[in-house]
Amino acid sequence: MEWNVDEPLTEQDLQAIDAAFQAATSSFRKKKQRRTPDAVISDPPMAVRRLPSSLLALQHPNPLLSPCQAANERTRYPALKFRGRIVYSRTATEVEKAAEELLKNLEAEKRESGQVVLGFDIEWRPSFRRGVSPGKAAIMQICADTSHCHVMHIFHSGITQSLQFLLEDPIILKVGLGIASDAGKVFKDHNVSIKAVEDLSYLANQKLGPKKWSLASLTEMLISKEVIFLVCCEN
């Protein structure tokens, strides 16, 4: 009888294996009785039916991982994709125009709700040498909604008048992870004091439990997505 190794054994298959085993045992006993007619052959003790390890492996082709292996396994989530429009600004003229557009779009929302919220983050070149300071804040990312995200290369443009007005507006709430240190970095590098900041890691600690939250871990926890970082800072 032939079994399909890709499918688990059924009860009918197990019965067929038992029948083949019994037939082979009976044949062996008869041959041995003919060779030793005076010997008394006792029936073998009834054994619990157990498949050989090779067949058990076919029954369970994907055994469970050991606790150590399971602990080292990392769940992979689908990538979080921003399907809106990313607006890049490099020169002072481009940054000023982008900031003016942002302020204009936020005015109506400010009149309706009294406050608006912006996602905020900055990037800069780190230093891995002792005694060498990290680079200046180089890229500023501002997102007002899911349809537009502004990426401003402030290392080249500096912080223009309209952008400074937006950052210092106490009615426009800026949110992010580690945003307090980002605000301190902007003040140190560009002498602009960002008003109305809210660190999302504090809120996450209150709602989800204490942890050193990152944007990636918070995204995985809340919406089961993986953040792929593609934008690199430059000088």
Rank of each mutant, 00 (worst) to 15 (best):
Y202P: 00
S53Y: 03
K104N: 07
I139A: 01
E234Y: 10
L56I: 10
H150N: 15
E94A: 14
E11T: 12
V116G: 02
E234S: 14
K174I: 06
S162P: 04
T10N: 07
R74G: 00
N235T: 11
W3D: 05
L9N: 08
R83Y: 03
V40S: 12
I122H: 00
F229H: 13
S89Q: 05
K225W: 02
K174L: 05
M1K: 10
M140K: 06
L200D: 04
R90D: 09
L51Q: 03
E96Y: 02
A47M: 12
T25W: 05
D145N: 15
F155I: 04
P44H: 01
P210C: 06
E220Y: 00
S193L: 13
F187C: 09
D121P: 01
T36V: 04
A71T: 05
A23V: 07
V227E: 06
S127T: 07
G119T: 07
W3C: 04
S193N: 13
P52M: 07
Q115W: 01
M221K: 15
S201R: 13
C232V: 08
Q69F: 00
A47S: 12
E123N: 05
L218A: 14
A70N: 00
V87R: 04
L222S: 05
S224R: 14
S27F: 06
S201H: 04
A71V: 01
L80Y: 13
G119C: 11
G209D: 09
M140R: 05
G209Y: 06
V151E: 11
V192L: 06
T160G: 12
G176V: 07
R49K: 07
C232F: 10
Q22W: 08
